[in-house]
Structure formats: C-alpha cells, structure tokens
C-alpha cells in the first residue's frame, strides 16, 4: 500500500515524457527540411512566411497604395487608380484586378477572394518546394501526438486528484511513496498541460528551420520602424516619400511584410486592416491566416524556442481591427447618378 499511488503516477509520467519526446522529434524532423538554393526571398514570400496569406495581401495593398496605384477609401474600400497600369508581381496584379470592378471592393473582400487565388497558392507552393515551409499534412503526426499528450495531461490530473482524496481520507497510508506520487503527479500534470498548450501554438506554424532563419535574417535587414517614412503632406496619392524612392519603397514593403500594417505609416493602414461587417469574428471559410489574423501580436505566431514568429501571426499590432467599415459607404452612389452618358451629364 506504500507504493499504491506511486506506480500509476510513475506510469503516467513515463507516458508524458515519452510522448513529449516524440512530439519534439517529430517537430525537429519536419522543420529540418533542407532548403534548395535559389534567389533570395522576395517581399511577398517573406510576407507569406511572416503572416500568411493575410499579411501577403496586406503588403501588396500597402505597397500599391504607397505607390499611388491603388486608392484606399474609408471603410477599407479599394479601387485601382485609373491609368496606373498593371504589375509584374502576381499578388499585386490580382489585387489590382479585384479592385478594378466598378466601385472597387473592400480590403476584406479582396483578402477573402485572394485566399484561394493563384497568386497566393503559387507563393505557398514555391516556399514549400524550396524548403521554407511544410504542407499542412506534414504536421498531422505531430498534432496527433499532441492530442494524445492532452489526454495524458487530463489523466495525470485525474490521478492526482484521486491521490489527494485517497490520502486525505486515509484510504491509503501517508507514506513517502504516496507523498512522492502526489508531488510528482502535480509536477507532471502541470508539465503536460504547459507542453500541450505550447505545442498547439508551435504546430500552427508551417515554417521550417530555414524559413525561420530567413525571417530572422530579413528582420535584421528590415528592423521595426524602417517602414515609417515621414509623411509628406503632398497632393501625390500615397506620397509617403516612396513614389520615386526605390530604397524607401523596399523598406516599406519589407517592414509591412515582416511586422504587419502597423509599420505602414499612413492613414490608409487603419482602413486596410478593417474587416467587413458581415465578417464578424468567425472568419469561417477562409484559408489559414487569411481572415482576422491570428489575434494579438503581429510577431510571434508560432514559437519554436527563440525563433522569430512566422506564419500564423496576426497582421496588425492591434490584432486586426474588426470594427465597422461602414461609414462612407452609405454616401456612395454618386458615380452612377452624377455622371452623364452621351451629353447627359449633370
């Protein structure tokens, strides 16, 4: 009876340690894909690694707005600026195409439409093929192990409660073995719970070690604040000092790609971050990361040791505004009624 509680506590502890080790090994195996060589990652690839589809689309919108090729109006409505031409970047061109419909589209609608669009799918495949990301399926085993760890955490907790009750009611003797069982039970329950939660976060990220390393390197090049160009109050749309300044343009792109719209020093940033009313808080039906961000920090979507955050994080330092975009939309309708057709203008 001296060891009656210690035996099951020991067995559960072994199971917890064992499954935790399996998850770590699986994690390491999945993340250790060796990247293929090739050109350095470009801004939209970095954006995809840092914040997923949502960050990538937001980066394109911010850059196009800064260049004066895309107009952002209140409520996050986007419209292609007439005569601004197309883009060689597939992501930018897709944004421009979607914003070229009469009356434009909201940023939220553009993000949703692009989530499954060819430009983002292309980036995802490119990053996966080059070893910077893994497909969702690669994490299935790790996630499955983590579910088991969750069950073990629950089992350990139940065992601990039971042990405490048995000792308190003196159904078992208060010996060294049983006391040790209670102490170790508490420790391993807590350990399992903490590891389970931490794994849940890290298993959201699809980045490989090489992906994290690339992000780290990019964050040295583009530090926080590097996209904060002084606002020049000039009539030039998006005249945040970037129109004819390739370096500054790259800095804005890099900063928004890596850290989110909080780095876009423009009143447009708040509007771009808006979600539509109908979007609510569910974000259902959208590709991962495409809607509503990951909530909270714009940095660390996944935490793999001290790695920089990757895909899965939110896109705006406030966690992505989901408040009204309404505002100006009700004042619309001007275009169709004010303009005239042949000779019929007002």
């Amino acid at each position: 009876m001296e060891l009656v509680l210690l035996v099951p506590a020991f067995v559960i502890a072994v199971l917890i340690v064992s499954i935790s080790s399996s998850i770590k090994r699986e994690h390491r195996r999945v993340r250790s894909v060796h990247p293929l060589g090739g050109p350095p990652l470009e801004v939209y690839e970095l954006a995809y690694l840092a914040g997923g589809p949502r960050r990538t689309v937001n980066t394109a919108i911010a850059l196009l707005s800064a260049q004066g090729r895309l107009r952002v109006s209140r409520g996050g409505r986007l419209a292609a600026v007439s005569g601004s031409g197309g883009s060689r970047e597939a992501v930018e061109q897709e944004v421009l195409n979607l914003a070229s419909v009469p009356g434009g589209q909201t940023a939220g609608a553009v993000r949703r439409a692009m989530a499954e669009g060819p430009a983002l799918i292309g980036i995802m495949h490119r990053l996966t093929g080059r070893g910077y990301m893994v497909p969702e399926t690669a994490l299935a085993q790790g996630r499955s192990y983590n579910r088991i760890l969750g069950w073990f955490a629950a089992l350990s907790g139940i065992n601990w409660v039971l042990s405490v009750v048995l000792i308190a009611t003196q159904a078992v003797p208060v010996g060294v073995g049983n006391i040790l069982a209670v102490i170790s039970g508490a420790f391993f329950s807590l350990y399992a719970l903490i590891r389970h939660q931490a794994n849940q976060r890290t298993l959201r990220s699809l980045l490989t070690r090489a992906g994290y390393d690339s992000l780290s390197a990019a964050r040295v090049t583009f530090r926080r604040g590097s996209g904060h160009m002084p606002i020049i109050h000039s009539p030039v749309h998006g005249a945040y000092g970037v129109n004819d300044n390739t370096f500054a343009y790259a800095a804005v792109g890099g900063a928004v790609a890596l850290y989110g719209l909080g780095e876009f020093n423009s009143p447009d940033a708040d509007e771009i971050a808006r979600e539509d009313h109908m979007q609510g808080s569910s974000g259902g039906g959208c590709a991962a990361g495409a809607c509503g961000g990951g909530g909270g920090s714009s940095d660390f979507g996944g935490s793999w040791g001290s790695d920089p955050g990757g895909f899965g994080g939110g896109d705006f330092s406030s966690g992505g505004s989901s408040d009204s975009g309404g505002g100006s939309s009700c004042g619309g309708g001007g275009s169709s009624c004010g303009g005239g057709g042949c000779g019929g203008g007002s």
């Binding site: 005569g83 601004s84 009469p102 009539p235 030039v236 749309h237 005249a239 275009s335 303009g339």
Partner: peptide
C-alpha cells in the same frame, strides 16, 4: 471639379 468614375491619382486630381 466633377469626377465620377475612373478616378486618377491624387496628384492628377490636384493638378
């Protein structure tokens, strides 16, 4: 100035 569609850049409108 009336401008109802195909809006050009801010710079163009300012001009």
């Amino acid at each position: 100035l009336e401008w109802d569609d195909d809006y050009p850049s801010d710079q163009a409108l300012s001009e």
